[in-house]
Computed example of a mutant assay.
Amino acid sequence: MIAAQGGICLICKKRPAVHVDHCHTTGRVRGVLCFNCNTAIGKLGDDPDAARRVVSYLEGNLWNPTFEAQGVCRQPS
């Protein structure tokens, strides 16, 4: 698996792939990641929705309030 990945982490594509990542529900191996990426997934609780919110946040799309009056804003639902 590591050789098939070119020896690098599937997520960051920068660091060596040294940690086997697996689904904690099914036990299925997903790939081999670096320590940082494997830890990040774990801290997100293996939650794809949380990962999508991370992407939105990094792209600047998560917090986009609508200003209703001076000092009053409404966050989109």
Rank of each mutant, 00 (worst) to 15 (best):
L33Y: 15
L62G: 02
L10F: 04
G31N: 06
A40H: 09
L10W: 12
D47R: 07
S77I: 01
G45D: 03
P76A: 13
I8D: 02
A69H: 00
M1A: 12
S56R: 04
A69N: 07
V72H: 02
V29P: 12
L33Q: 00
V32A: 10
F35L: 01
I41C: 13
L62P: 01
G27I: 14
Q5N: 12
R52K: 14
A69M: 08
V32F: 14
V54N: 10
C37E: 06
S77Q: 02
P76K: 12
R28A: 10
R28V: 14
I2C: 15
D47C: 06
L44D: 13
K13Q: 14
L44P: 05
R53K: 09
G45W: 04
A4K: 07
G60M: 15
R30T: 00
I41D: 13
R53Q: 06
N61K: 11
I41Q: 13
N64H: 08
C12R: 15
K14I: 07
D47W: 06
I8N: 04
N36C: 11
C9T: 02
K43M: 13
P48F: 05
G6Y: 12
R28K: 15
G42E: 11
D46T: 04
D21F: 13
P76Y: 02
F67N: 08
R74C: 14
G6L: 08
G31D: 14
D46H: 03
V32T: 11
S77K: 02
N38F: 07
A17T: 08
G60H: 08
Y57R: 09
R28H: 11
T39Q: 00
P48Q: 01
V55P: 04
M1P: 11
A50S: 10
M1D: 06
R30F: 09
V55G: 00
P76R: 09
C73H: 05
G71P: 00
K14D: 15
E59N: 06
R30K: 05
A17D: 02
L10Q: 10
Y57A: 10
E59I: 02
S77T: 07
N38P: 07
K13H: 09
H24I: 13
H19F: 13
L44V: 06
H22F: 14
V72I: 14
R28E: 11
W63I: 13
V18C: 05
H22W: 09
G60F: 06
L10Y: 01
P16Q: 00
A4S: 13
L10V: 11
K13P: 03
H24L: 08
T26V: 01
G27C: 04
M1G: 13
N64A: 14
Q70V: 05
F35N: 15
L10M: 09
P16A: 15
D46A: 01
P65V: 08
G6H: 08
R52C: 13
A51Q: 05
W63C: 12
G42A: 09
G7I: 12
D46I: 08
A17H: 01
H24G: 06
N64E: 03
N38H: 10
G6N: 03
P16K: 14
R15Y: 00
V29A: 07
G71Y: 02
V20P: 15
V55C: 07
E68H: 00
G71V: 00
C9W: 03
